[in-house]
Write a protein that binds this DNA or RNA. Structure first.
Length: 595
RNA sequence: GGUCGCGUAGCUCAGCUGGAUAGAGCAUCUGCCUUCUAAGCAGACGGUCGAAGGUUCGAAUCCUUCCGCGAUCACCA
């Protein structure tokens, strides 16, 4: 039973004994730093039931608790706030109880229903950029958080491997590529494909210019530029299964996948199952026809199929074109159903997709509900804000993107520069150093992105890039490394680490604060899972680390002469290190032994 | 225009189901390495919580209106 649960009962008992009144609930909050105490009971809400002076009521309840509850050592009352000082041995007992707990803070694996998390839905015509990085990191982290909260999780990706965009890259390569391959060009394979996507756009723009110069109006030129018509023709050929086009498509998509794999690997994200739109884009059509019979959808005169959502305050939405072909919505309906078929145990899906698609998902979920799928109630759009540059939106075609691979590389370089300046790595091999720079560079990047509430947009300034000091990944990693250094020097053996501590120890104020923060970890994991928010984990671990550094500065650990006190401080440090590592694992960030 | 989201210190962000004097980091300034890693610690400076009303004993938090920024409202994805 948690402290708060114990106290809630006791406060109710106090009020019942003192005033013969049954309280429906009691309001607690952590005591503010400027007052003495650990937990505060707010008296104001009780005044509705208990008439009287809040200070007097608080004092009487405080006296009752001090006398009747062994966990309460002292109390004081300020205005309507009853501040309770919790006894040291309560915290020591708590610490003993988690001393040997592996994966402290994580719930029993697979104790909750299975969830599928979709993240990263790239187009296959260009390399990944900073926007994809946010998507990937968020989706991966939320998956790990859901796992830690007890869910079984399937990570998935929907790869948009068909459509006009990839045809543009293919056509430009055919026209201007002269048979260039990743091998002959020396370019990373997805970047090579991206190069031709840009080349297409340049050629297209030039053709429009020419047409406009010849007297055509701009809108018409944009529709009739020969190279665009060619690309559209190529898409038709692809849909018709033209061998040559399909072979080119297979080859160039292959290049892109190879490049994506490297980027994913560098980012440290992975997937349990892949879905390709080229396989699923026809899936939804039968379902739509079914829904048409059931009256969920209706057909217009031209043969197109729609759903009327005006009762829900939305518009009409098309689900099938007049020529019978699928739109985005159709294929998403199909994909959702396919996933439930493939993984019958899932009871919920999370779509990690930018907030520009809020409306799409609102409609998609409504349609699935109207089609009568019970699991439609358990769908969640993890909507996140865009990553913008000071110059505005990132645009691949115009080259104003922060490339994922470049960014990762530059983070590692910065980590290397700083490490070199600080010069603490004597004895490390070149390989160990490189590995460390990767851990730190990626840590800085991932933390920078994940600490922000997902729904807020991120402004990324490449000039200023990402900090390595203050509320940052490296700051937290540094604290972990310091703790490991203490553990190496502590000369304690395995038994010292597993034997329960004397509960008669007097706690230093900093030790108590640390224990309180450690105690919050399990509920933080649950809260982060409920809110699909890695930011809660990031902020939690930052507070923990700040608290530890303050403790580290003020209290000697290895220099302590009392053996039991020293052992406690080492063990406490070790536990804090464990929690840092566990929390960072939820963010997909590694921790170093030294730095 | 309709709908949705956001607006907190110069900048980047916290602030749980309403509670005490709104908190961090960066930047600027001041101390602290002959004790466990100074990527650190301690402190100073910095706020009409976009604006106005309302609910409440109490509002950054809930409600309404307005302002600003963004997204969306395609037989695009």
């Amino acid at each position: 039973m948690s402290l708060q649960q114990i106290l809630e009962e006791k406060v109710k008992k106090a009020v019942s004994d003192l005033y013969q009144i049954e309280l429906p609930s009691v309001e607690f909050q952590p005591t503010r730093k400027d007052f003495e105490g650990d937990v505060t009971v707010v008296i104001f809400p009780m005044l509705r039931f208990v008439k009287g002076n809040p200070v007097q009521i608080g004092t009487q309840i405080g006296e009752f608790l001090q006398e009747n509850v062994e966990e309460i050592a002292k109390f004081n009352v300020v205005k309507g706030f009853l501040n309770l000082v919790v006894a040291d041995n309560y915290y020591l007992n708590f610490f003993n109880s988690i001393l040997s707990t592996a994966n402290y803070g994580y719930a029993e694996p697979n104790s909750k229903h299975a969830v599928m998390v979709e993240y990263s839905s790239p187009n296959t015509n260009k390399p990944l950029h900073l926007g994809h990085i946010r998507n990937n990191l968020l989706g991966y982290s939320v998956s790990e958080i859901l796992k830690a909260s007890g869910h079984k999780v399937y990570k998935t990706q929907i790869i948009n491997d068909r459509g006009i965009h990839i045809c543009k890259s293919m056509l430009a390569w055919q026209k201007f590529g002269k048979g260039e391959t990743p091998e002959t060009s020396g370019l990373k394979s997805d970047h090579l494909v991206g190069k031709y996507y840009v080349a297409f756009d340049q050629a297209y723009k030039k053709e429009i210019e020419t047409l406009v110069a010849e007297g055509m109006d701009k809108a018409q030129a944009e529709k009739e530029a020969p190279i665009l018509l060619e690309a559209q023709e190529m898409l038709r050929k692809w849909e018709a299964g033209d061998e040559e086009v399909v072979a080119l498509w297979t080859m160039m998509n292959g290049w892109v996948y190879e490049g994506f794999d490297t980027t994913y690997q560098n980012l440290g994200v992975d997937f349990d199952k892949l879905y390709y739109e080229s396989n699923t884009y026809l899936l939804g059509r039968d379902v739509v026809k079914d829904g048409l019979n059931k009256g969920v959808f209706f057909k217009k005169e031209d043969g197109s199929v729609w759903i009327d959502l005006t009762d829900e305050g939305l518009d009409e939405k098309i689900v099938l074109r007049s020529d019978g072909t699928a739109v985005y919505m159709t294929q998403d309906i199909g994909t959702a159903i396919q996933r439930v078929t493939d993984f019958p145990d899932i009871n919920g899906m999370v779509y990690t997709v930018g907030n520009e698609q809020d409306y799409h998902f609102k409609v998609l979920f409504l349609i699935l509900k109207k089609l009568g799928y019970p699991w439609a109630e358990k769908l969640y759009h993890l909507s996140y804000g865009m990553v913008d540059l000071p110059s505005g939106k990132m645009k691949s075609r115009e080259g104003t993107v922060v490339d994922a691979d470049d960014l990762i590389a530059s983070m590692e370089e910065t980590a290397a520069e700083i490490s070199k300046e600080l010069g603490k790595l004597e004895g490390y091999s070149e390989e160990e150093k490189q590995n460390l720079f990767r851990i730190i560079g990626l840590g800085a990047l991932k933390y920078f992105i994940l600490k922000v509430d997902p729904k807020k947009r991120i402004l990324f300034n490449p000039e200023e890039s990402v900090d390595f000091q203050g509320n940052t990944g490296p700051f937290i990693q540094y604290t972990y490394a310091r703790i490991q250094s203490i553990l190496r020097k502590s000369n304690l053996d395995a038994k010292d680490f597993s034997t329960a501590l004397e509960v008669t120890l007097d706690l230093h104020e900093k030790e108590k604060e640390l224990l309180k923060q450690v105690q919050l970890f399990p509920e933080t994991v649950q809260l982060a899972a409920e809110n699909y928010s890695p930011a809660l984990v990031a902020n939690y671990v930052y507070d923990l680390v700040k608290e530890f550094n303050s403790f580290y500065q003020q209290v000697t650990i290895l220099g302590e002469t009392d053996a039991e006190k020293k052992r406690f401080r080492v063990l406490l440090s070790q536990k804090v290190g464990e929690v840092i590592q566990s929390a960072f694992r939820l963010l997909g960030v590694d921790v170093p032994e030294r730095m």
